[in-house]
Design a protein around this nucleic acid. Sequence first.
RNA 1: GCCCCGGUGGCGGAAUUGGUAGACGCGACGGAUUCAAAAUCCGUUUUCUUCGGAAGUGUCAGUUCGAGUCUGACCCGGGGCACCA
Length: 870
Amino acid sequence: MSRYNPSQSEPRWRAAWDQADSFKSGADPSRPKYYVLEMFPYPSGRIHVGHSRNYTMGDVVARYKKARGFDVLHPMGWDAFGLPAENAARERKVNPRDWTYENIEAMKGQLQRLGLALDWSKEIATCDPEYYKHQQAIFLKFWEKGLAYRKSAKVNWDPVDNTVLANEQVIDGKGWRSGAPVEQRELEQWFFKITDYADDLTDGLEGLTRWPEKVRLMQQNWIGRSRGAHVRFPVANAAEHLGAEAVALGDRIEVFTTRPDTLFGAAFLALAPDHPITRHIAQDNPDIAAFIRRCEQMGTSEEDIETAPKLGVDLGLRVKHPLDPDWELPVWSANFVLSSYGTGAIFGSPAGDQRDLDFARKYDLPVKPVVLPPGADAATHTIEDEAFTGVGVVYNSAEWLNGLETPEAIETVISKLEEAGLGAGATTFRLRDWLVSRQRYWGCPIPVIHCESCGAVPVPEDQLPVRLPEDVSFDRPGNPLDHHPSWKHVDCPRCGKPARRETDTLDTFVCSSWYFARFTAPVEDAPFEAEAAARWLPVDQYVGGIEHAILHLLYARFFTRAMRDCGLVDLPSGEPFEGLFTQGMVVHETYRAEDGRWLLPEDVEERDGSVVEIATGKPAIRGALEKMSKSKKNVVDLDRFIADFGADTARWFVLSDSPPERDVEYTESGVEGVWRFIQRVWSTIDALPLSETLPKPVTPAAGAKGEALALRKTAHRSVAEVTDAIEGFRFNSGVAKLHDFANALRKTEGSNAEGMLAARAEAAGLLAQLLAPFMPHLAEEIWARLGGEGLICDAAWPEPEAALLEDETATLPIQVNGKRRSELVVAKDASPDEVEALARKDEHVKRVTDGLTIRKVIVVPGRIVNVVAN
RNA sequence: GCCCCGGUGGCGGAAUUGGUAGACGCGACGGAUUCAAAAUCCGUUUUCUUCGGAAGUGUCAGUUCGAGUCUGACCCGGGGCACCA
């Protein structure tokens, strides 16, 4: 009996796949296409077992779809621009380019050793000028179309990474990479007009039925569409308080509200502290200037905001109620009004909004309820400390409005406002435009030249790419492109006068917003071939981490729409990813020394129930299970793992036990279990007689009886079950079913029943085919051993024989009053009456119903019998 | 505070439309093999039990002939959003 040796077997099969060009896409355009993609990696160094889960899942799908007859595109590339390369340059004095390409080479080898069915002919690296020159062309196209623009705005500044960040990259007020608290700076920067698509991006979510509900919800919340109205309040005493500039600032104050139906409950207007009118009045009013300063000094952290009291100051300004000219309202400035949302101004309706109520109570402003909650009595309903924010019936308002239900009242008020020319229905969004400038070196240069006479001028297309200079110095902080002696000095392409090159680079999320399109045909003279993109897009199955739920996945959806509208891609929906799967991580135990150092799991051991560091003998602390990461020292290197156990073990392990969307814990014993399984499968195959005497593995063992028939049933049932599991992304269930199947096959060893050899040969062939997407090397080895034709990766997926999926008899559980008491073996086509009669005669049923009357017997054919007795 | 997801043996988890709860794996225990160990193989493994059976899927109620699955309230864990008008 031989053992299975992956280190000998696996390289042989990878060479065979390479030689046959097995995974080349587009080989047969008559087949339906299937595009499967895993989020491409950042070349950070080396791949560990944690990374491999993502690629393995995509690979199962790719291999399965190929077997199902699809022309599969499964490419791989490198999200190669980014800060770690610059940090490496600073710390180790290496060139970011060299560092990146070395990592790419190392990681490519690792991915290849994992046995992934990838089409490497489509490989791309975003830091390659061949890639980013097209990105620069797309940028210029967006600019031409008004989808890219430059403006001065308050932006998020990361003081550690020394660059600005998009809103999406600020998590809890901190930079997404550095974790440093973000500062606000007024800078002139490039933006993409993602807000143009805010509506469409929200509406499009509904069609993404193969996306996780959770991701769609997160995007919906992030875009934050609210429908309501803009309402303009005429200023009653503008001349007094705003002076000659009243007209410039507007003699009306516009607010946004989602509840125009509560307009008659208005008690005040409130402006943001940095609203232009607030600022203007503050020029001559020290009290208000002091208030603004005080608001600016307030923290922006979660805790600060939660505990911050409502603060405000009366600006002295008064406005007229838009639907009642005799009614004047005071105008305040309040710290809870944000200048960045809506119009930066609100009308306070204290009975219907908790913040307004808190504010009104504090400053003694009137609280008039105008919405009557369902079931409440108009005569007695009052508001104390809690506002009523729900829907109901309007009262205490204008005659024409009283008595209307909330939705109708909203519509009615909007029409009245429109008639009066003082408002209109409106939709606002939380989403802001995407800030894409970065003050970094290792990114795609923005192809713009700044000229004193001509302004910002696009680099002519025939001069693209604008290449990054390679002779850069990281000796001082800041952007090396700014410090470069010559790179930024160019002549204006329009007037020829000396000008300055834009030294900002594009956010690396721009690179990942269209790479999936370039994969379809990475040609030289275009971002991608329009025809190829039209055939392959959208991606049928995308696999990646949940951490990109908003960032990458939202940007890519925007970018695809923008490319569509620039005529670059023919994809009417604008949706790049038809199916999305967000996989869980591989987590592993962590250990720390008492002084806080992270320790490798192999550097600690258990002594008398507690953990100690082997080197020092000092106690160590067992930490939480954490996602594998270098900084926590709990990674398992993929090369090391493959050398010890083989790629198939890694693949099988990361798919076992936990559902794909949840985390899976890395354990030595789990890995050993996989190793045992592989050896057992191999020895089961090895126990079959030599291939010459065996039927070919695809031959049905027709006419089997008894034990042989039972094995055939198990085999064909397994085909159906494993197929379902793969289709439904339940790889852990597929793994379990394959365990069952392999165990069943193994149990038939030594049986001399009639027709058994043929049945075993057939089953072994089916087992190999079902294993193939999960453990492709072992599957090839078995296939060859059985004398299968060609490579198993080229074989068509097996179809179960329908007749073998059904039994002639059914085992029905019998319940009495819902409790299982017995079971009954009946013919599959037994009539309900027969089954009922048998159930009534059952010994256990008789015993349990002794002394009771059987009221009813429910027979669910083929499933269950329930006897109701009392 | 709002929204979403989850809670099943010692552990990871299975049970896809309401129909035999605990598949499969890990661990543990017992046995075989061995001078011994490793490896391997066989068996047991939800709990209680008077060995007939009884209880059991976070808690409490409900719907149903029948609930892990559906409904309501609550408890616990995880995630997202957050003075967003």
